[in-house]
């Protein structure tokens, strides 16, 4: 883990409330795994104290860059979304444990399910799967087509299916309504999104006895397992999402 000043290389709106930022640093960025996150300091915003945890959307070792998807929900994320090329954002990174990747050569047919801004870490995960010769299938959910984030980027990495709640793109409804869930022959499911969505997917994965990992986003402060604020009540008791997660195998969760 490092504390680094990141420099914004580019920042562009990807929906009315979300921004995709590409950042670099003077130093070499530490190695990062899909599913890990960064904690960004919020400057120049009176009253806002704590860092904001943001999952790593993309990482490229060669160009020494990482990408983040930030959704504007409050004053802290509003400050992040207003950063322009050349601005500096202080980060602690990389934090937490990433998704479990299949060992090289192992037969794997993964489905990566994301909802809303929760699609963010799945791009980096998809790239890492590709590097291992596995073509990922994405199932992305959003409220409307306009809130569907970075679809073209996902299409450059794997096969993409879409659901929208209003039905203006893809299958109408929630991700759990998409026929690919029952028609596809997947042996691994990775999920990140709103908790009710993840719970619905977990229920289906359990019913189908499919290996499944979810990325949680409990409200956190320190990001390194010191304050014990972001706990999830698991089968082994309260554990810090920031340090033991944010990715959990569903076998550890009490979710029913």
């Amino acid at each position: 883990m490092k504390v680094l000043d990141l420099i914004v290389k580019e920042s562009c709106a990807v929906s009315a409330t979300s921004v995709r930022m590409v950042l670099t640093a003077h130093d070499t960025l530490p190695d990062m795994q899909p599913g890990q996150f960064v904690e960004l300091r919020i400057d120049d915003t009176p009253g806002v104290l704590l860092r904001r945890p943001i999952s790593i959307h993309d990482y490229d070792k060669e160009s020494n860059t990482l990408a983040l998807l930030v959704q504007r929900v409050g004053k802290g994320t509003a400050w992040l979304c207003s950063r322009q090329a050349g601005d500096v954002v202080n980060a602690v990174l990389p934090l937490g444990n990433g998704f479990t990747l299949p060992s090289e050569g192992a037969p794997c047919s993964p489905l990566l399910i994301g909802g809303g801004v929760g699609v963010a870490p799945l791009l980096f995960l998809g790239r890492e799967l590709c590097r291992r010769g596995i073509v990922p299938t994405f199932l992305l959910g959003a409220r409307t087509s306009k809130e569907l984030l970075c679809k073209d980027l996902f299409e450059s990495v794997g096969t993409v299916y879409v659901t929208t709640e209003v039905g203006d793109e893809g299958v109408k409804g929630f991700v759990t309504h998409h026929p690919v869930l029952s028609e596809g022959d997947f042996n691994a499911v990775y999920v990140c999104g709103p908790k009710p969505m993840m719970q619905a997917v977990v229920t289906m994965a359990r019913a189908g006895e499919v290996w499944c990992e979810v990325s949680l986003e409990n409200r956190m402060a320190c990001g390194i397992g010191a304050c014990l604020c972001c706990v999830e009540d698991t089968l082994s008791g309260n554990v810090c999402v920031c340090k033991e997660g944010p990715v959990f195998n569903i076998d550890r969760l009490k979710w029913t």
Binding site: L49, N218, R219, A221, V231, E232
Partner: peptide
Amino acid sequence: REGNPYPRMAETPSGMLNAVGLQ
């Protein structure tokens, strides 16, 4: 001690509230 149930933290103006409960 398992501490208190989640949520245990709320950010407030220039501060934060916690209710970790001595986990």
